[in-house]
Amino acid sequence: MTIPVFELLRPKTLAEASELLLKHGDDARLIAGGTTLVILMKQRTVYYPYLIDLQGISGLDHITADGEGLRIGAMATQRAVETSLLVRRSFPALADAFGKIGNVRVRTTATVGGNLAHADYRLDPPPVLLILGADLVLSSPKQTRTVPIKDFYRGLYETALEPGEILAEVRVPPAPEGSRTLYLKYSSLSANDWPCLGVAALLKGNAKRCDELRLGVGGLAEKPLLIEGLELARNETITDSLLDEIARLVDEQISPISDLRGSEWYKREMARVFVKRAICALAEEDPHL
């Protein structure tokens, strides 16, 4: 399979890139790592006469931290996040989620921005970013706006990006003091596969007393979801009946798509199992217990 001829445009600044996007409209698309786009172009599923290369724009691949949290440039590679000591120390689950994508070659080439913007319903990182309350910085010639990640996903392959807008940065605020996070990826076919589903959990407290619980799930609806209503767990002891109640809450909010990796029935079953496993693992992990 070859890619039909197109022209690669190589802007030097974000503003220039946005302008090119606006100028060419539906005839142009941003290319970040290219791992998804190149496949779709080869399969002739999509075709754009112009691809706008984000690689030549400097200052888009940073991973830095300050008092306000972590900042990851959209062009940082998935592998860079996975192996960043900064990320691993402060948000181990985030490093884990990026580290569980596809294979090392994909992670070396593909970017954070490309992953988030592609908006496939099964991606690994979004559930973790959801529980961490990440904000996405969207840039266009008119304005730079910040969108909470839970508002970024609109539907299957649909995001809040407006014409001409580029995802420039991901901002992750500091996690609540004393909280721990975990990402569980479950592949139902070969061990190497895309996820059947992914569950991210944040817990502050321990098995005896839950101060705060957050859950994010991937692969269980048309878009990644942040589970709502988890206040019910606050100040509770983590018992089997509480876990059942949480699982019920999750079950009400998800709407899994049957696919090659599991039917709707199976995904609902697995959501229950992995949500419980994630919470239990975090509860038992508390160093103060």
């Binding site: 496949i39 139902s188 076919l189 070969s190 061990a191 190497n192 596969d193 895309w194 090659l260």
Partner: peptide, 27 residues
């Protein structure tokens, strides 16, 4: 354990190595 060509109305649903899985070193 997992290999299968999945057809729907004669159309193959997993006709690429993104979807059709073969054992990797992890398996």
């Amino acid at each position: 354990l997992f290999e299968e060509m999945v057809f729907e109305e004669g159309r193959l649903l997993n006709g690429s190595l993104l979807d059709y899985q073969i054992p990797s070193i992890k398996d």
